[in-house]
Simulated scan of single mutants.
Amino acid sequence: MKHWKLKLGLLSGLGMTVLVGLLIQPRWLLNLIGRVGPGATYYIDTDAQAVALTIDDAPSEATDEILDVLDRYDAKATFFIISRRVPGREQNLTRMVAAGHELGNHLTEDEASILLSATDFEAAVLEADRVLADYGPVRWLRPGMGWYSPGMVATVSRQRRQLVLGSVFPYDTHIASPQFASQFILSSVRPGDIIVLHDGPGRGDRTAKTLKQILPALQAQGYDVVTLSTLAEQQSAKD
């Protein structure tokens, strides 16, 4: 009986360790995932006191408020655009680019990219690229819902894009609390991290509130909040 209790205790402890690891997204875990499924960028290895801010699912009715907050703190972001949300909100993308933000490909719909056939996935990549081409070059692609396969990586690479996920995701798609998101980010962030937040219906206004809390706090700690490409350039400078 004691033997089984010990086993159960060890298994319980291991399960809790894995659960906590998943919640806080430590780099050892991201490195392990990257070795199992290569081809995605999770963070940038740099000594610069900088982080990349990324915002998924734009544009929406909250995008202007998000941009206002970014302007207030002179912070830059990479906005991952869902292309079929662009009609009627073209001015949001124009404003992003004019303000020095960066556009990324987030395909055409808010859906799990990994569930698409190879043909449909490539078609969605190309359709989104065509929309974004009117606003400037696109370097990065983030798959919907964050899951990817080797075939998706190959497709993205053929289009000369880099598949990117992130290293600080405060579960803002599931926990509707700017306070939780802010505390999660500020307690987890390290130089080179890629922060993931969300625009879109019901989420963009929360992101604006989160940014009002984290941006002055990050800057007080000496962080520059930059686009993905700017952070990647700092990796090159380090190398």
Results as ranks from 00 to 15, higher is better:
I214P: 13
V131N: 00
V153P: 03
L6W: 13
N31S: 12
A217Y: 02
P150G: 10
Q91A: 14
F121Y: 12
A217V: 06
Y171G: 02
I195G: 01
I194C: 06
Q159E: 15
M96S: 03
P170I: 11
G144A: 01
L23H: 07
R142T: 06
V20Q: 10
G192F: 10
Q91P: 08
A48S: 10
A217M: 02
A77F: 02
R190C: 13
A181G: 01
T78G: 00
S182D: 04
K76P: 15
A50T: 07
R203W: 12
D224G: 05
A123C: 08
D110N: 09
G204V: 07
S149G: 08
L228W: 09
G151Y: 07
S236I: 15
A75M: 00
M152F: 09
I66Y: 02
I214L: 05
L116S: 09
G21Q: 08
G13R: 12
V168Y: 01
A48G: 04
E233M: 11
V196E: 07
H3S: 14
S117L: 04
G104W: 07
Q49V: 10
A40V: 04
K7D: 05
P170R: 06
L19G: 00
G146W: 05
P201M: 13
T94Q: 14
R206E: 12
F169N: 11
D68A: 13
L70Y: 03
V164G: 03
V196K: 01
V138K: 00
F184A: 01
D129I: 02
R85I: 03
P178Q: 04
R203D: 09
K7T: 14
Q219N: 10
K238M: 14
R142H: 11
D47T: 08
Q159G: 04
A50G: 09
L22Q: 12
Q183D: 15
E65N: 03
G9D: 02
D239G: 11
L132S: 05
L211Q: 07
T54W: 03
L228M: 12
A112M: 12
S167W: 03
V189N: 06
L165A: 00
R206M: 12
Q183G: 10
L132Q: 05
A98R: 07
L107C: 05
W4V: 15
V164I: 11
Q183T: 15
V125M: 12
R139C: 08
L6I: 15
Y135C: 03
H198L: 10
A118E: 14
N31G: 08
S12D: 02
A52Y: 01
F121R: 03
R161K: 15
L29T: 03
V97E: 06
V189M: 05
L163T: 02
H106P: 13
R72N: 13
Q25V: 05
M152A: 10
T230I: 11
T108C: 13
L8N: 05
P201T: 13
L228S: 03
F79W: 11
L163K: 00
S177P: 12
R139Y: 15
D57G: 01
Q221K: 14
V225N: 09
R95N: 12
E122D: 09
D71C: 06
G88F: 01
L19R: 04
V97R: 00
V69G: 00
G13A: 14
S157A: 15
A99I: 05
T41E: 09
R84Q: 15
T63M: 06
L165E: 08
I24P: 07
I82N: 03
L70A: 04
A220K: 07
Y73G: 14
R158Q: 14
Q91T: 12
G202H: 01
H3A: 15
E127S: 01
E90C: 04
A75Y: 00
P150C: 06
